[in-house]
Design a protein around this nucleic acid. Structure first.
Lengths: 206, 206
DNA sequence: TAGATTGTTAATCGATTAACAATC
DNA sequence: TAGATTGTTAATCGATTAACAATC
């Protein structure tokens, strides 16, 4: 349970393990081995054992890992054994899709607010959410103590939005805008940009 | 121009550099330095110089890099100085959003087909595209020589879809389904799963 | 020229793998 | 028990950083 000093690259693999275990669990499997899990996620068995052993001795020699037990432990380590409120900024098509996405709930996340600066969108409904005015965003997020946000605005305003989110106390941003953003230390950013991901693969094609 | 043996981790950073240069260029900037580019993308100047120098001597001592020139070179290296046709499998909300997304064109990609297996969707239009039957997918993709696909189907069918794509000759898959998929050597996969990205950040929150 | 910045080398740092004793 | 698989160590491998001569 040596929770400090764990490299980020290991932390990044844990959600992938958890996701694979979830699939195995759905298929009715009760136990797995580092070997088997590794084949599912494309990572060596040695690395999986090493990664998991950073946090405790969760396996048993001879039989491997209990899937529900390991899922519990990973959820606990990743702190997704609780619900995290998430705000969406940008009510375009992608913002709409994320607001309606059913896949967050059983993985620890709940969308609670959607913002946009377009007067023709503000006040409109997306399912249960009413699109709110970005000008009220800092106050709303701060008072609701929301710590995570997904940003689906044009690249040109992404930095300004990120600045406001930081000001509002947000500590983790999932940025869908196709641009890098700068945030203070202690604020975390992850990027999702389909073109960037595609460009990473074309190098290998002919 | 030693194009073989470049580590994948370097390839993965090139699209990020290219994207930042594109933003700089839009602002009217003509040159930049490894220092300045590094501040934009959050990577050390030394690493940027090292990465770029794998492919040639694209900078000038004293003045740095010409932004248009470096963009050209990166596009050439990443092979996005041409247009890549991309198929979308899964015409849910996310598939719709991707089919209509305007941001692919100037980064080397063009959506050319959208598939779904739901009879109530097949034949319907998404902008200029007609949703086609997944049962025709292998033949359609093969004869159109499409090499890239984005998969926005439920996790339960993602592997089956990936298998068909491989069969159709697809060599690069951007998988939005929240599950790992297995493909033969020579086929590339990138993953986009918002919950996984969010879970990678909650570890650091309190 | 003087100042700035590249490309590259060597040193450091970190991550992955292989191997195996421990043990279920 | 015999077989299987973990957790961990040591060795290998790879990536990053610091420093600086070259030079625009």
């Amino acid at each position: 349970m040596n929770a400090d000093k764990i490299p980020d690259i290991i932390i990044g693999r844990l959600p992938v393990y958890l996701r694979a275990l979830q699939r195995m669990s759905e298929k009715g499997m009760k136990t797995t081995s580092s070997q088997e899990l590794g084949e599912h996620v494309g990572i060596s068995a040695a690395q999986i054992r090493k990664d998991i052993s950073q946090f405790g001795e969760f396996g048993k020699q001879g039989t491997g890992y209990s899937i529900p037990f390991l899922m519990d432990k990973l959820r606990e380590i990743l702190k997704v054994n609780r619900m995290w409120d998430v705000a969406i900024v940008g009510a375009g098509e992608l913002g709409h899709a994320l607001a309606r996405y059913q896949g967050f709930t059983n993985r620890g996340f709940r969308v609670v607010m959607v913002f946009d600066n377009d007067p023709s969108k503000i006040g409109h409904k997306i399912g249960e959410f009413t699109i709110e005015d970005t000008s009220k965003m800092v106050e709303r997020i701060r008072s609701a103590k929301v710590k995570m946000a997904m940003v689906t605005v044009p690249a040109s305003v992404a930095q300004a939005v990120a600045d406001k989110l930081v000001q509002a106390g947000v500590k983790a941003i999932l940025n869908y805008a196709p641009t890098s953003i700068n945030v203070p230390a202690g604020v975390h950013v992850q990027y999702i940009d389909p073109a960037t991901h595609l460009q990473r693969m074309t190098y290998y094609l002919d």
